[in-house]
Design a protein around this nucleic acid. Sequence first.
DNA 1: CGTGTGATTGACGCCTGTCAACGTCTGTGG
DNA 2: CCACAGACGTTGACAGGCGTCAATCACACG
Lengths: 234, 234
Amino acid sequence: MKSHHDIPFCEQCVSNMTNIFKHLSQEEIENLNYTKSCNFHKRGEIIYHEGNRPTGVYCVSKGIIKLYKTGIEGKEQIIRFAKKGDIIGYRSILSSELACTTAKVIEETNLCFIPSEAWLDLLHSNNEFSFDIMKFACDELGKSNSFITDIAQKNVRERLAEILLFLKNDFGLDKDGVIKISLTREEIANITGTATESAIRLLSEFKEDKIIALNGRKITILDEKRLQKTANIY
Amino acid sequence: MKSHHDIPFCEQCVSNMTNIFKHLSQEEIENLNYTKSCNFHKRGEIIYHEGNRPTGVYCVSKGIIKLYKTGIEGKEQIIRFAKKGDIIGYRSILSSELACTTAKVIEETNLCFIPSEAWLDLLHSNNEFSFDIMKFACDELGKSNSFITDIAQKNVRERLAEILLFLKNDFGLDKDGVIKISLTREEIANITGTATESAIRLLSEFKEDKIIALNGRKITILDEKRLQKTANIY
DNA sequence: CGTGTGATTGACGCCTGTCAACGTCTGTGG
DNA sequence: CCACAGACGTTGACAGGCGTCAATCACACG
């Protein structure tokens, strides 16, 4: 299901000067605006599949996408989320590889598609832009390496606590203090790298201990200090 | 202990056209040759420490370096190795962050040091070069993400088998079929993300099953097919 | 109202980390 | 040449974290 209403202008995205497009010239932005195509996607839609050949880069204008790899017996491991202003699919294009993750909509999304050629042209012609993308990739790399250490050395309880803190930092809180992302228990488990049942049990324990409050998929952090302590972060 | 004999010329490194410097101009290479400084390092020496501010990028001209993060109670998690032609320390420089890993010599090494400024100048002035570095970072990112999935979903036996295959592919075999990297059991455990004793036990089992042969730190793969099967790779 | 998806809880047992003891090897100094 | 220390490797015992299986509940939807 796709619809074309509410096509966002790149200017709007770029207006946030902390984002990935901040070093594009006015002309480049207009060009991008002309070249790109935008679509609306509902929860559950798959943007691209692991193993497929990517044809371009997507930029999230609204909503949340999860990027995951499929491991043993179809179990998914969530690698990262992409939200407003983030780009996805940029990695495989560079090395002309097949997509190494699947991208699936978690919260209804407006997505802009930039064809490979236009994207690569930009990278080649605008050095500042290229530099920013490199930084972005390196940041990702740093996070991934940290997570490797965590997952290799921390137990599930510590990791889950840490993930909750990450989610809070990445997505923020609504007026009621609820973390602004709605995930199934299975998805929470698939970020943490554990079984769904284990995630549920530990969430229940955190609730029991008054560290968090649970209301369906709504999660509120009640005691951040203790959550940090549980996560083994200092 | 450092000595200055046998300073390598960048031309030698660059002569391998698959490497990271292949798109530098003759002039840039000569410049680099002039700017860089080279040193010899013995096994065990630390090139830089996690948490320190990096002052430049290192290029391995000979030998092997391990890059690791220090986790809970000082346990190290090896993130990657760098060998001839590889660069280390490039990530933190880009984002002006503190080094996120420690770099330690595994096998005696000739290292070239390129100061931050020279490195960043190159990145800014030579778009092709910058593009190659970006690719390199993206490749790393892909590997890291794969390993996250592995470590989250595979058991220690599968991971260890996989690591042995990685080591064979990355470092090759000598004339006797021995994998050309010498690691302590503890280091093998610290790549795999397990306890030293577990790594030892599983290595012994592999030996028992005639999948590998062990002779001190010398490891020979006897039955690659079964090792792949053990690693759950298809 | 039946169906399906997700959430929860209990039971069970294996994998794996930890602790401890001991063996092996190398280098050093007396 | 021997004794010793120290680093590394190996093996056994043990417990508990966590994954798996299964049953049940909650809730939305056609």
